[in-house]
């Protein structure tokens, strides 16, 4: 599903040039659960942003479902992203002015899904995430664990092939963190590919494979479970 070849990302300011990713080769198969670990600043989130088509690499190749997308323009990336990828962030990234229902409905609006179908899909996913009783609430009225469940609902409502999670349990206590990890594992068991950046060795244990990044390089890959 994902293949990067000699992927490089350089951030430049007038004075400093920082190589965030240095010739990264990574392959993720459809249905796989991969954890990316490494110290702060090693390039984990940069890699996730490129895989998620939020950013382009400076050099190298990136294949998404067999298509080379590294030179895609913003509009092409957006089209590919909205129908294929769901995002879960550490800080939830919900829109405070929208209700739970409206937050989860957003990806379907971008995909021009008709209103009646949107309602059905949103209600089904809120039910599944055990948060439907809060559908009229605003994010700030929810606990961190509830907000992350809403964020996961938003990530999966359009039935994406790939979920990208950036420190999904980073702002949660252990009980809520465990629940979020169980949801991601469950989605993976049902066939969704998951790529997760984490600092937590416990969370990484849920993955089939752990990739260790250091200074923008992949230094090792550790297979945890048969895939």
């Amino acid at each position: 599903m994902i293949r990067t070849q000699e992927l490089v990302k350089v951030f430049r300011t007038e004075e400093v040039e920082t190589t965030a990713l240095n010739k990264v080769n990574l392959e993720v198969k459809e249905g796989e659960f991969v954890a990316i670990m490494g110290p702060s600043g090693c390039g984990k989130s940069t890699l996730l942003n490129i895989i998620g088509l939020l950013d382009n690499p400076s050099n190298g190749e990136f294949y998404f479902n067999g298509i080379e997308v590294s030179k895609f323009k913003e509009k092409q990336r957006t089209n590919l992203r909205k129908s294929n990828i769901g995002f879960v962030f550490q800080s939830f990234n919900l829109i405070d002015e929208l209700t739970v229902f409206e937050n989860v409905e957003l990806p379907l609006l971008y995909l021009n899904v008709p209103a009646s179908e949107r309602k059905k899909k949103v209600e089904a996913v809120l039910e599944r995430m055990k948060i439907s009783h809060r559908k009229k609430h605003f994010p700030q009225q929810l606990s961190g664990g509830q907000q992350q469940r809403v964020a996961i609902a938003r990530a999966v409502v359009a039935n994406p092939k790939l979920i990208l999670a950036d420190e999904p349990t980073g702002n949660l206590d252990s009980a809520n963190g465990e629940e979020v990890m169980e949801l991601l594992s469950e989605l993976n068991r049902e066939g969704t590919t998951v790529v997760m950046v984490t600092h937590s060795p416990t969370d990484a244990e849920k993955a089939h494979r752990i990739v260790q990044l250091f200074d923008g390089h992949v230094v090792t890959e550790n297979v945890k479970k048969n895939f």
């Binding site: 110290p39 260790q212 250091f214 230094v219 090792t220």
Partner: peptide, 27 residues
């Protein structure tokens, strides 16, 4: 030089006792 360090680190990790699994690399 950084590349050399990474190559050296990769080699050290690859050749390490396989009864032990890597948990974390410290900066």
């Amino acid at each position: 030089a950084t590349i050399d360090q990474i190559i050296q680190l990769r080699s050290s990790i690859a050749n390490y006792d396989s009864n032990w699994e890597l948990i974390q690399i410290f900066t």
